[in-house]
Design a protein around this nucleic acid. Structure first.
Length: 358
RNA sequence: UAUCGUGUAGUCGAAUGGUACAGACAACAGACUUUGACUCUGUGUGUUGCGAGUUCAAAUCUUGCCACGAUAA
């Protein structure tokens, strides 16, 4: 009896090819596309480069039709609104910089979708993420590993997966190179073979997330002061939500040398501006942890660490701290460590775990 | 009030009296990126504060006015 797999199909090339590969491997598959927000809310008159618009649903359906498999559309709008969009807004209000893609993985794809799949008696879900899942018989734990195509590796945004999620998930693209994925899509004549990779926040049109927060989410954005490291006022900012640590563009401030956001102070509604060197620090505290390769960190360990997506890893030592925190000490100072972003710990290709930066 | 100094692109600032802006920063646009960012590449016609004068030629010299700054009483 073939294993049953529900493939999360965004309408893009990756998840479509994932479906093709699984079917070729003999799985009994069906496709599922998630409706995460109303198109009216996002205005997708032209073909956007987001991942879940109406056109994308059509593309997914078309691919499923071609493969001769069932296609479902699940409406997760409410959960998405609550767990992803609202949290996104609250984070910005609190002066930190969220990563909605990770929340979407945690609360939608690898939570709601798995539940639904189990309800429908599927054995697994599958996605088009570039990462690999393995099982370590020594520790008895499922492992998350980097993709073979390191330039496309997405293990960073999957660090939130728990053992149960991992045991129920297939990532057929983990061993593939992107160029080959496109090639397969071409060969199979998939409608989205040449569709551009998705990017930008999927629920925010034209990348204007600050406008989205103000207009759609009712987030207030009060003007305030830019201050230098000594506390002198050096200009006026448009509101704290417009900035993130390490940001250079859009400050409108000319100091004769590049100026960056060093941090944001919610209490005084100020944004501290400094030079590139002011951005570096050698430690951070991670909380809201999710450990994968081990149950819990009980003693210090060496690891390589990423403090943001598409950044190369750096050496560090992890120190357990209290119940649910880890202090990360870097060998070399790191640039623009940003509260709200994820920090992910690696041992070679293996994801040890990760957490949110405080 | 007097004396001195300064006034060039959005900002800072180059430019032996020779037909205007090197550079930096900002801004804008692309590229990169399934978050926010960083990074990379590309993009600069403005009455050189206003007016008069000297000169073949003035941002540059002289001078009046204006603005700003400093010093002096």
């Amino acid at each position: 009896m073939n294993k049953k797999v529900m493939v999360a199909m965004s309408g893009g090339v990756d998840s479509s090819v994932a479906a093709v590969l699984l079917r070729d491997q003999g799985y009994d598959i069906c496709g599922a596309t998630l409706k995460l927000f109303s198109d009216e809310d996002v205005l997708t008159s032209c073909r956007t480069r987001t991942c879940c618009s109406l056109d994308d649903v059509e593309d997914a359906r078309s691919v499923c039709y071609k493969l001769g498999i069932e296609h479902f559309v699940f409406n997760f709008k409410e959960t998405f609104q609550d767990e992803v969009i609202r949290k996104f807004a609250r984070s910005y209000e609190a002066g930190i910089t969220p990563n909605p893609c990770i929340d979407c993985n945690r609360y939608i794809k690898f939570s709601k979708l798995i539940q639904r799949a189990i309800l429908m008696e599927k054995d697994y879900i599958a996605t088009g993420h570039y990462a690999q899942i393995g099982f370590d018989s020594v520790s008895g734990r499922y492992l998350l590993k980097k993709a073979v195509d390191l330039s496309k590796d997405q293990s960073y945004v999957l660090y939130v997966l728990n053992q149960h999620d991992l045991s129920r998930t297939l990532l057929p693209l983990g061993g593939m190179y992107k160029t080959d994925v496109r090639k397969i899509a071409e060969e199979r004549n998939l409608i989205n073979a040449r569709k551009p990779d998705s990017q930008d926040i999927c629920f925010v049109k034209d990348g204007d997330y600050a406008g989205f927060l103000e207009n759609m989410m009712g987030v207030e954005s009060k003007k305030g002061n830019f201050v230098d490291p000594e506390g002198n006022v050096i200009g006026e900012h448009k509101g704290i939500i417009h900035y993130t640590v390490g940001q250079r563009k859009g400050l409108g401030i000319a100091l004769g040398k590049p100026a960056y956001v060093i941090n944001k102070n919610k209490e005084f509604n100020t944004v501290k501006i400094g030079s590139e060197e002011d951005l570096y620090s050698n430690r951070l505290i991670a909380s809201d942890l999710n450990m994968i390769a081990l149950e819990k960190l009980t003693s210090p360990m060496k690891a390589t660490v990423k403090t943001r997506y598409s950044q190369k890893e750096t050496e560090a030592v992890l120190h357990p701290e209290g119940e649910d925190s880890i202090v990360v000490e870097f060998k070399d100072k790191q640039r623009a460590i940003t509260p709200g972003q994820a920090v992910v710990f690696y041992d070679g290709d293996i994801v040890i775990g990760g957490g949110a930066i405080n």
